[in-house]
Nucleic acid binder design. Structure first.
Lengths: 400, 400
DNA sequence: GCAATTTGTTTATGGGAGGCACAAAGCCAG
DNA sequence: CTGGCTTTGTGCCTCCCATAAACAAATTGC
């Protein structure tokens, strides 16, 4: 009996990888998809067709001829503008931000929110989800998952916040479970995931930002207080066996430095944060305002010798910490966020020189050190978490 | 037309993973193979049959009934005793060792060799390969590859020794190319690979020794001089973007410590090596003998207060270094080799206490710290390198 | 207009794994 | 000893999914 095949009798296994290529901007056309996937044109065509019928990508009808190239021009593949979204959120010491994020790291809508300092996880996440649900109602788009970035190491696979030092949350709070409960309470029957904010920022930068194409990406960032690190190896986030990897805040960068709450002295955490910079410059920080903004203002505007000396000192400390990490991890690219990004931009040559000088075997001179490039990278990273099931297997993830 | 299929119309893709399971001792029977591979019994049977006809494994004819289990007993799968071997070798400051190693990390034959202190790479590797070729003639087994462990970081993909500090070799020596030239000169038309000795020891311990089953394995070892580290993530060696990862010798463990050739002070390298222990105990090391042996002798036999105090001091330094690595890498198991292994065995409680106390967030208390268990683990690791193509795709690797 | 080049699609073919029935080989109960 | 019960191993069929190959389409260059 002849067996009529309607559609997609091929390309089923390549569906996930293909979507990931379009998602990360590495497959602008079906021809590129063919070579990147290592399949035939027939398969690539079938895959693209299926992704299109799933409403995830679009193929433009008018092919655009690339100048200087011969042959038939390619149709361009792009993320669908009206495709599904995920709910992404970031919680930090000063408040939270909720957003709808489509494939390709595209933020479709965003809303900030504040919270009381001593709010417990259930309260905060309830508000977060409420804000997200409001955005969702306004957009009319389908939501297929939710992701949350928190300023704490997150244990895998439990999904608990191990050290939420900058929030009034108990250590070990079952954040993912609470998040999922809030989601179902709000009528959103989608799976929720959560992760550390710096880890997720690194993931986002790797897929859509300055980390694109790096094989061993190291990301270090300060937020309002505290330093976080993350490592992306071969496209996968390495968060250690318990989610506690790259807790780099307590590398010693000055043995005679100021005491740290960890019991040691001169930790990266207390020597390269906004407060350290302001104090080194002799400023008395205004407790009402954001320390990060004050430090950034200093870096951008203050050209006095004392400010420059303070900047140089903090840059040297940061360089020392980065060099230690380079010796242990040997990354091929480093991305800095938060205050570290502003420090890099204040004097890139100095930071690179310190890292090169203090890291061994001379190779590190060629390691690029770059500022992060995405707005809200933790938010986009949280969205990546929620998109992951779709990237792994679009058919089953969207089957519901 | 009906199409008669002779053999292996299935299981081709699972061949490599299946061999790896038998190789690492995780698939004693076809039934286990079925569950571990996640395929049907039919496929697992076909795979085992094909591996058998390739001469890699054996299936015993008399099934052994496991006591206390019901059902039909399984036939046991085992590495074939007369299968192919690889030539493995390790070079260190005092000489070298060549061996033939079968699947499963089984050393079939081994031969030590000495070398002049100032010999260049071509001389040394020429002798190494000659010794291996002699073993091979004596065994009558087929050789399908060669692996070399060197006490230096090895750059990937160039295969050059970046810092062979303990050999009289130039930095950047193209060790893999030289090794391959020696192999072809000796009439062995097999591919040669090389890697860092501690990295390879970690790989071997992960596959056949104390690291079995760990997902995030950290390995730290001293040899005669110098400290090396290695990390095995999800079964794959992580050696960094340029082969320079885990160069942990220059972590600072005592800011007021002795000067190190790297320019800093109190590095792990100089504070936890045999010389440091002997000096701390007030011994004058005998330059004629092996420092490692003298240090080991001290740890095993000397119960005087000064020896105990020296041991405690060095253990504390080691613990500090390990704690730093735990904070950055969050491994789920730590394996120690060389002098560090003897330090662990001299006072396991003290070392574990220091690591626990100095690592953050308390989780590390549960990280097992174990001595390495394989004899010649670097050698076995070098063999793993040579076996890798076979484990990846047995059919093409053995096609020649 | 025609060759050359690259892209996309249709159709036929085939590799390789799953499903299922059955056989085999041990326990255990009677 | 014999007939269930359980687990392991194998033969046969089916079907998913990818390749191969031929054809069609859209552009550049001559």
């Amino acid at each position: 009996m002849t067996h009529t095949r309607t559609r997609l009798d091929r390309g089923r296994n390549a569906l996930g990888p293909a979507l990931e290529l379009v998602h990360t901007g590495r497959a602008p056309t079906r021809a590129v998809l063919t070579t990147e996937l290592g399949v035939t044109r027939a398969t690539a065509g079938a895959v693209a067709g299926e992704l299109q019928t799933l409403g995830l990508i679009t193929v433009d009808s008018r092919p655009s001829a690339a100048p200087g190239s011969q042959g038939r021009p390619s149709h361009r593949l792009a993320i669908a503008d009206d495709g599904p979204v995920v709910l992404a959120a970031q919680v930090h010491a000063d408040g939270f931000r909720a957003a709808l994020v489509g494939l390709g790291g595209r933020i479709a809508a965003t809303a900030p929110g504040c919270m009381t300092v001593d709010a417990d996880p259930a309260q905060v996440l309830g508000e977060v989800v409420a804000a997200g649900a409001a955005l969702l109602r306004g957009s009319g788009r389908r939501c297929i998952g939710a992701g949350l970035a928190v300023p704490s190491a997150v244990a895998e696979p439990e999904g608990t916040a191990l050290n939420p030092l900058h929030l009034a949350w108990p250590a070990g709070a079952p954040v993912r479970d609470i998040f999922n409960r809030c989601l179902t309470d709000a009528g959103l029957a989608v799976p929720g995931f959560c992760g550390n904010d710096v880890n997720l920022a690194a993931l986002a930068e790797h897929r859509h930002g300055a980390g694109h194409g790096a094989e061993h990406l190291l990301c270090v960032a300060t937020g309002h207080r505290g330093v976080g690190g993350a490592l992306v190896l071969d496209g996968r986030l390495h968060s250690g066996s318990a989610g506690l990897a790259l807790e780099v805040g307590h590398l010693t960068v000055d043995p005679q430095g100021r005491p740290c709450h960890c019991g040691s002295r001169g930790c990266l955490d207390v020597e390269t944060d906004p407060l350290a910079l302001l104090e080194a410059a002799g400023r008395t920080p205004d407790p009402a305002g954001s320390l990060l903004d004050q430090a950034r203002h200093l870096l951008r505007t203050d050209r006095t010798p004392v400010a420059r000396a303070a900047t140089a000192t903090v840059i040297d400390r940061l360089g020392l910490g980065l060099a230690g990490l380079v010796n242990i991890l040997n990354p091929d690219r480093i991305i800095l966020g938060g205050l570290h990004r502003w420090l890099l931009e204040a004097d890139p040559a100095r930071l690179r020189a310190v890292v090169e000088e203090r890291s061994l075997w001379g190779r590190s001179g060629s390691i690029p050190i770059l500022p992060c490039t995405l707005d809200h990278n933790s938010l986009v990273g949280a969205a990546e978490l929620a998109w992951q099931p779709v990237l792994d297997d679009p058919l089953t993830a969207l089957a519901t």
